Amino acid sequence: MPAATTPLDRLLPGAIARHRHQGAYAALVLEGRYVEAGEGGRWQVEPGDVLVHPAFSIHADWVGRGGALVVNLPLRSAGRLPPAFRARDPQALLDLAARGQAIELPEHADALPPLQQDWPDALAAALRADPGLPLKTWSRHAGLAPATLSRGFAAAYGVTPARYRADLRLARALERLAGPEPLAQLALALGYADQAHLSRAVRAATGMTPRQLRQSNPFKTRPDAQP
């Protein structure tokens, strides 16, 4: 059972609009089933599954009948964990969290692949592989009208393809801000018009400028706490 200090989250049936979390955490599913869509793709999860959320990540959820119960486990860093995995010993994760130790991929746990059910998942995968992919070109090759593309993707991911691409670009910018790369160079490499455009996007998502974010360094991996 979760420790008394471990936060439980009861998810009601239905859709949960896209939302962003400031701190990195892992959501361990204890009861129920739901689908989550974020920058890394879509996952259908059930008890024993774990969804990993980097700092400032954004996602939407669709919760099944009966709702779901999850426990949110704070992470020092999400960088060494897969986006989703199945824990064969969920209690071991709860024990690590209760002792203040870093959560790592448990032995014999299986990484979960993102859903690949229909063309919205194929488009999401294509955008993750190439954020500069022209949407008109993709829709033409798929035989879909632009309006159909936008509506269908939003139904599956809670956001238009253009917004999803912007979220991917921002997620990559946040990852690379952990390094020493000059901001102007980073903006150019990720397709922002200029450094000011990058700064506005980062501030809108985090409430901080890129320089302030680097100083706070929420992505840095800290040493594990001792038991």
Results as ranks from 00 to 15, higher is better:
residue 5 T to V: 07
residue 5 T to K: 13
residue 7 P to L: 05
residue 12 L to S: 11
residue 12 L to W: 01
residue 14 G to V: 13
residue 16 I to N: 08
residue 16 I to P: 09
residue 23 G to R: 15
residue 26 A to E: 00
residue 32 G to Q: 04
residue 33 R to S: 11
residue 35 V to W: 02
residue 36 E to M: 04
residue 37 A to H: 10
residue 39 E to M: 08
residue 41 G to C: 02
residue 47 P to Q: 02
residue 50 V to Y: 01
residue 51 L to K: 06
residue 52 V to W: 00
residue 53 H to G: 00
residue 55 A to H: 03
residue 63 V to N: 09
residue 65 R to E: 01
residue 71 V to F: 10
residue 73 L to E: 04
residue 75 L to K: 04
residue 76 R to F: 11
residue 78 A to F: 12
residue 81 L to P: 00
residue 81 L to H: 05
residue 88 R to T: 11
residue 90 P to R: 00
residue 103 I to V: 12
residue 107 E to I: 09
residue 112 L to W: 01
residue 115 L to K: 02
residue 116 Q to T: 11
residue 116 Q to N: 10
residue 117 Q to I: 01
residue 117 Q to N: 09
residue 118 D to S: 15
residue 123 L to W: 06
residue 125 A to F: 05
residue 126 A to Y: 06
residue 126 A to S: 02
residue 129 A to Y: 03
residue 131 P to C: 08
residue 133 L to M: 02
residue 134 P to R: 09
residue 140 R to H: 06
residue 141 H to W: 08
residue 148 T to W: 08
residue 148 T to L: 12
residue 149 L to W: 05
residue 151 R to D: 15
residue 151 R to W: 10
residue 152 G to Y: 04
residue 153 F to L: 13
residue 154 A to E: 15
residue 155 A to H: 09
residue 159 V to H: 07
residue 160 T to K: 10
residue 161 P to D: 12
residue 161 P to T: 14
residue 165 R to A: 06
residue 166 A to F: 09
residue 167 D to H: 13
residue 177 L to D: 03
residue 178 A to H: 14
residue 180 P to M: 11
residue 180 P to K: 14
residue 184 A to L: 14
residue 186 L to P: 07
residue 187 A to L: 14
residue 189 A to Q: 05
residue 194 D to H: 14
residue 195 Q to L: 11
residue 197 H to Q: 13
residue 204 A to S: 15
residue 208 M to T: 11
residue 212 Q to A: 06
residue 213 L to E: 02
residue 214 R to N: 03
residue 214 R to E: 14
residue 218 P to G: 06
residue 220 K to M: 13
residue 221 T to N: 04
